[in-house]
Design a protein around this nucleic acid. Sequence first.
DNA 1: CTGAAAGCGCTAACAG
DNA 2: CTGTTAGCGCTTTCAG
Lengths: 339, 339
Amino acid sequence: MAVTLKDISIEAGVDIATVSRALNGSYGVHKNTRARVLKIAKRLNYRVNLMAKGLAEGRSRTIGVLVAAISDPSILEQIRGVEDAAYAAGYQIVLCNSYLDVKREALQLHSLLEKRVEGILIHSVEALNKAEITELVESEIPVVLFHQIPGTSNFSSVCMNQFEGGFLAGKHLVDLGHRRIAFLSGPRGHGNFTQRIKGFTKAIKSSGNDISAIIMYGQPDFEGGYKMATEMLKKHSGVTAAFAPNDMTAFGISQAVFEAGLSIPEDISLVGFGNTELTKVVRPPLTTIHHPKYEMGQAAVEILLGLAKNGRLGVPEHREFGIRLVERSSTAPPSKLRS
Amino acid sequence: MAVTLKDISIEAGVDIATVSRALNGSYGVHKNTRARVLKIAKRLNYRVNLMAKGLAEGRSRTIGVLVAAISDPSILEQIRGVEDAAYAAGYQIVLCNSYLDVKREALQLHSLLEKRVEGILIHSVEALNKAEITELVESEIPVVLFHQIPGTSNFSSVCMNQFEGGFLAGKHLVDLGHRRIAFLSGPRGHGNFTQRIKGFTKAIKSSGNDISAIIMYGQPDFEGGYKMATEMLKKHSGVTAAFAPNDMTAFGISQAVFEAGLSIPEDISLVGFGNTELTKVVRPPLTTIHHPKYEMGQAAVEILLGLAKNGRLGVPEHREFGIRLVERSSTAPPSKLRS
DNA sequence: CTGAAAGCGCTAACAG
DNA sequence: CTGTTAGCGCTTTCAG
């Protein structure tokens, strides 16, 4: 079996409580005793048993993170912010991937609760279902969402200004002179995308009557982008610009465009979302919407820990981050030949 | 506070031990009692406290997974296999991302040990350092590696036949008629890549004296592939084919090739490694080496749990998976014009 | 089939 | 500054 406080206490000839104190705080233990205990602990290769510690303290120093697909580079960057902030505050994170599987998500949520995590961060692509929301609310655990979910205003959230994101992209394309613009969005009804679509159409509607927007719904990933774009090119003629729900989807779109024998930005201008690493290096470099992913992760933890500390579960906090357009080479005025 | 066994026991008018039994096994509890307890537990929304349970049982029912970069789709697929197998066996996994940071990795390893995980799966890109190996060995915890690390033969491993992977790729390109072939590999000295390089050069050497191989080392990701290929195209003329350490790197290479005004496979034939999703959909579809990622993840858990059960830490098990070439459109005979 | 009691490893008052 | 004493919530003999 593993070394315990008792082993150390025997070896050091002091009480187990003293060992505990020596190992944790520096207060109230004689310097020499402390040094001796520390040395012995090291020699014996002692390692706290976090289960025992957690049980005794009544807290796990752990926060759960529920994400849909960690393969998404934007999400990964947020998680990195979460991890760093959590670690800095002495917390560990338990990462759960739902792989977009609702059942799996429920299971994981359940086990997070059993682990007595002190808070939960959620970044699922699909909205939570009723049962899950109820379960969360009843567990009285702090929750911070990385997106707005209709009907869950009792949870805190950290988001970017989705509306403005859509607006900026739409305006950019309109300003370039595009008149028929498509938004190949994520799943219908998801909070994030809904707002973005509103911003997008606002930009287009307010720019003149001769401009039209096409909205399509699909999976927000490479494959989904590829499919939506393929369909769009077939069905909707005259489109000269597209806006994607995230960069990966944009890459899928660009794939479909190339395959149709068209090029970017000459035939189709393309705007992504996320400003992930690949956007700079891909050909052509992708115009995209930037938002502070890492910082959002940090902020989420900050809020979560604040909620936990003050027991203010009733007053959710909402933090919104700014957004900006990063112009690269995938957007240009529509070529005369096609327009 | 959360509902405990005691709350249920009071409500049900039975002893707490009976409640425990009713909730866990079905043995030795009267049907009616059991039903009553279950109903009350449900009504009260009872949830085990895993910390308490783990402490009492002396086991955490948890296994740790240490990976370098979860953003790699191949790794993600393996993890999926791990999760499924672990879940089926009643285990939970604790996923740790080192982000290629050695210090971070050490920290995470440490905390896994403190959590009393019952085994650790490791898939780091960099080799473990001495201190970590010692720590692991001393902790007497089952360890399964997803790659071979020199000098750690006391750990079990699940790998693919790296040598054959390299050989198949090399042979395929040679058979197509290529005479000057590059392997833009991962970091120098890593077990996986070393073996693969050996297989690759073997295929080339054994095919004739007029064939030459160029080996380059770099980061095994999109960016790394892009850089290596850019450099290669500048320095080494006459190369008509390239082999990448994984698919993402291959995409980076293809980016660089396109940017140089060349095309695939007309100017450069390209072979990836991993057979990840994107290979099918990318243009041109990528010829690549397939290995059973999901199954490897499952196998790792199987071995791990076997080691734990039989206490046979001394006799590590090594499982090797087969590999095969998946031919798509990124490889072709060298075009007459260039060769 | 069920209750009583001990203990997992650690923390946290409370005395000294 | 240090030892004593209770637990934290759950499992697990051992009786009955």
